[in-house]
Simulated scan of single mutants.
Amino acid sequence: MTARDPAALEALLGRDLRLDYRSSPGFYENAELRDTLNAGLGQRDLAVAGGVDTLRQAIANRLKTRRGELTPLGHPDYGSRHHELIGEPNVERTRNLIKLYVLQALKQERRIERVLQASVQATHVPARDTVRIELSVQVIGQHLPLEIIVPFNLSGDTA
Results as ranks from 00 to 15, higher is better:
residue 139 V to F: 08
residue 31 A to S: 15
residue 128 R to I: 01
residue 84 E to C: 01
residue 12 L to W: 02
residue 133 I to W: 07
residue 68 G to V: 04
residue 65 T to G: 02
residue 110 R to E: 09
residue 45 D to E: 13
residue 42 G to K: 07
residue 128 R to L: 15
residue 132 R to D: 15
residue 40 G to E: 14
residue 48 V to C: 02
residue 4 R to W: 01
residue 53 D to I: 00
residue 116 L to F: 05
residue 44 R to N: 08
residue 132 R to P: 00
residue 102 V to N: 00
residue 60 A to G: 00
residue 29 E to N: 12
residue 136 S to L: 07
residue 119 S to D: 14
residue 98 I to P: 06
residue 8 A to G: 04
residue 78 Y to T: 01
residue 57 Q to C: 03
residue 39 A to Q: 09
residue 116 L to W: 03
residue 7 A to N: 02
residue 7 A to M: 12
residue 147 E to H: 12
residue 110 R to S: 14
residue 115 V to L: 10
residue 95 R to H: 04
residue 121 Q to N: 15
residue 142 Q to A: 08
residue 10 E to Q: 09
residue 20 D to F: 08
residue 31 A to Q: 13
residue 12 L to V: 12
residue 21 Y to Q: 09
residue 133 I to E: 07
residue 125 V to Q: 15
residue 123 T to K: 15
residue 6 P to I: 06
residue 24 S to N: 11
residue 121 Q to S: 08
residue 159 A to F: 14
residue 42 G to N: 14
residue 126 P to S: 09
residue 116 L to Y: 07
residue 147 E to A: 09
residue 120 V to T: 10
residue 51 G to E: 01
residue 23 S to W: 15
residue 14 G to S: 10
residue 144 L to D: 14
residue 58 A to T: 12
residue 29 E to K: 07
residue 111 R to A: 10
residue 133 I to K: 12
residue 40 G to I: 02
residue 64 K to L: 15
residue 29 E to Y: 09
residue 140 I to C: 01
residue 94 T to G: 02
residue 20 D to A: 09
residue 93 R to E: 11
residue 126 P to F: 11
residue 60 A to Q: 08
residue 41 L to V: 09
residue 87 G to D: 05
